[in-house]
Structure formats: structure tokens, C-alpha cells
Design a protein around this nucleic acid. Sequence first.
DNA 1: ATTATCTATAGATCTATAGATAATGC
DNA 2: ATTATCTATAGATCTATAGATAATGC
Lengths: 210, 210
Amino acid sequence: MESLGRTKDIATQIKNPDLVKRRHRQIVDAAVQLFIKQGFHKTTTRQIAAAAGFSIGSLYEYITSKEDILYLVCDAIHAEVESGVSAAMTRAAGGRNSLAEVIREYFLVCHQMSDHILLIYQETQSLPPQWRKKVLESEVRITGIFVEVLAHLVSTGDSPYLSERTIELLAHNISVLGHMWTFRRWFLARHYSIEDYIELQTEFLLGLSR
Amino acid sequence: MESLGRTKDIATQIKNPDLVKRRHRQIVDAAVQLFIKQGFHKTTTRQIAAAAGFSIGSLYEYITSKEDILYLVCDAIHAEVESGVSAAMTRAAGGRNSLAEVIREYFLVCHQMSDHILLIYQETQSLPPQWRKKVLESEVRITGIFVEVLAHLVSTGDSPYLSERTIELLAHNISVLGHMWTFRRWFLARHYSIEDYIELQTEFLLGLSR
DNA sequence: ATTATCTATAGATCTATAGATAATGC
DNA sequence: ATTATCTATAGATCTATAGATAATGC
């Protein structure tokens, strides 16, 4: 996973902003792996510092609490999902099959980032309120992309009329059925390949919109 | 929430099985509240003992590790969901609308047990492997109820033919869209009441099966 | 005698910081 | 001089158990 950490709002003692950005990226890259393997609470700040390649003292120059690290990690994961889906959307924009294409790309992103998405489901509640809020907003922003695609289809007549609330809910369903592959994969992968899964769920999701 | 703890497999020093059952129930009832409020890791065994009404020493006569408590809690939650859905199924059995009825009852159970279901999503990975496996099996068992309902509809001709794998996936979708109400409620409840949600999702889920 | 419960604490961490040291730029 | 990094540790927990005490039944 490429780390697209949009370093922001995290208090630090260090003056050089580029250095902060670089170190934050190191912290995220180290912490993601450890959190996936051990969970947030069982991972120690020392382990993170060691994996990132500097001392515990230095670590605390770039963050003020362990929860800061969790926020950096969640934010980086959402940034990557969002950029993947946005790219897919501009590529697919317009075509009659754009919905199916966007779903496909999104599900593939979920497939590749299974562990990361699972981590967000598990640890979001460990964030302090103000950051939990930001992480949940990212979730809404990603869902918003699907709202746009659906609204466009309806406006061009490529899909029959759907009310705003139906579109909204459908967009949430797309989001969550992508996530479902990550948190039920231990079961689903016994019966379906990711390609099977995409095909069946697309059929299902397109039921209402055509 | 009534605690239907099916006390089992937890090693204990105490001889009297009824006492063990009663104490386990006390432990579960105390721990559920604390875990929901603070999360598993931030809750201490002392808090659980105090809330259950006995000492930390006694607590450890009835369990061998803190993870035992988490397992008892997850198991009790699944037992309650399962019994709710089973009841709904026998009640609705047969009728042409049985699927809609079962979905409705299930979604209402999810609505009532939002916090509990959320807890399972967050903490299942904190369980030792053998118990995580049991908790995941409960998830499959609950999904299996929906498989039965769907298979029955197809067999009586009340629904057009659906392949076994389509039925299986549909059943998972029902499970997860119920859960979605719990983990996106912070957003969804702004736009939809639980009744709106049930109505729209039922329409959506019945798309393929009629 | 046996079973259940309690108090007190061993032993093991873990986060976060203070203060010392090294590196960089004027 | 200023900025970045490191070592060492304060201070605060937390799980799990050992050993003492109370309650129950023969």
C-alpha cells in the first residue's frame, strides 16, 4: 500500500514541515502493519518507533499521543480508497455501464485493501471523538461518489427515476457490500472468487436501477 | 437485553454448575455494558468484578482470562440474535410474504441490539483463535436461517428459481444489511427511520427473488 | 472437610516526558 | 543558536494468583 498520508492537524514539536510529512509517512507505514497484525491496543508505541526506524523519544516529537497514530493510519487508508474510487469514476464517467464499472473498481480496491478496511471497522471507536468524526466523514465522502454516479445515470435517462433517498441508500449499500467482502471473506472466499462476487453483487445492485 | 448465556467450555474452579451459570450471567451482564461504553481493552477486570458484584479474586474462579469474558459476551449476544430470528421464522413460516416478515423481524432485532452487534464487529478479532472461530460460526448459523427461508420460497414456487450460490449470497446480504443499520446508524438515522429503512431495503432485497 | 469468596500483591508492562547529546546553519 | 534525536525513567496501571477467611454440609 502506498501511503498517501494527508498530514494535518497533528501537533508536533518539529519545525521543518517536509520532515514532519516524511516521518508521519514512516510512522503510518510501520503502524499499519503492526495494527493489522496485533490490533491497536496490543501494539506498543515502542514497537511502532522501532519499526519506523527511530527512538521512542523521537516518535513523540511528531505526535502527542498514541491515538494520533491511529488517526494518521485511518486517514491514510481512506485517502487511498477514495483516490482509487475517484480515478475509477473519471475513467468510467458517462458510459451507460459506468455504474457497473465503478462498482467493479471499488470492489477490487476493497479486495486489495481487505486488511486495512477491516482495521477501520475494528478501531474507529478507539479514536478520540473529534477524529472519529473526521474518519466517519471520509466514509460519507466515499459513499458520495456512488451517489454522484447514480444521480448522473438517472439524469441522463440511463436508469429509471429513483428518489434521492433511494439513491442515497443504494450508494450506502454499494459501500457496505464492498466492505462485506473484507469482513466475511473468511467465509465467502470458500464459495466465490472476487470475480464471482463482483458479478453476482453487481447483478443484485443493478436490480433497482435499470 | 436478557442474557441467554449458553455457558460452556469456560474452565472454572467452582464445582456447583448452577452457581457457575448464575455467575457467568452476572459477568456477562456487567461486562456488556462496560465493553459497549469503553471497549474491551479499556475495561479492566476489576471494573467487571465490581459491576458484577464480587471481588476480583472471585471473578478469576469463574474464568481463566479476560478473553474468556469477551467470549461469554459475544456468545450471549449471538444467542439472543439467533433466538429472535428463529422465533420470527417459525411464526412467518410458509406464507408468501415470509421473507419480508423475517427480514423485518431481523432488522428490528438489529435495531434493538445495535450497540451489541457493533461490539461484535469491533472486538471479535481480540478473541483467541478457537473462540473467534466459534463466534464466526454463530454468524454463519444466523445467515443459515435466511438460506432456509429463501430455499423454501424457491421450492414452493413463491419465488423464481435461484441457484444455491445466489441464495447463499442473498442470505449474507440480508445479514449484513441488518448490521449496516448498526454501524451506519449515526448517518442513516438522519434520513431514515428504522421503518423507512426496512421498507426500502426489503424492496431492494426482494428484487431478485420475485 | 469442602467449597466459595476475599484481600493483598507479585510481576510485568506501557505511555509519555525530562534532560542530555548530536547535527545543522548562521 | 537552533533544530532534531536519543537514553533513561517517572508514574501509573493491569492481569492474574497466592494465601487467608468465611460459609456450607457431613
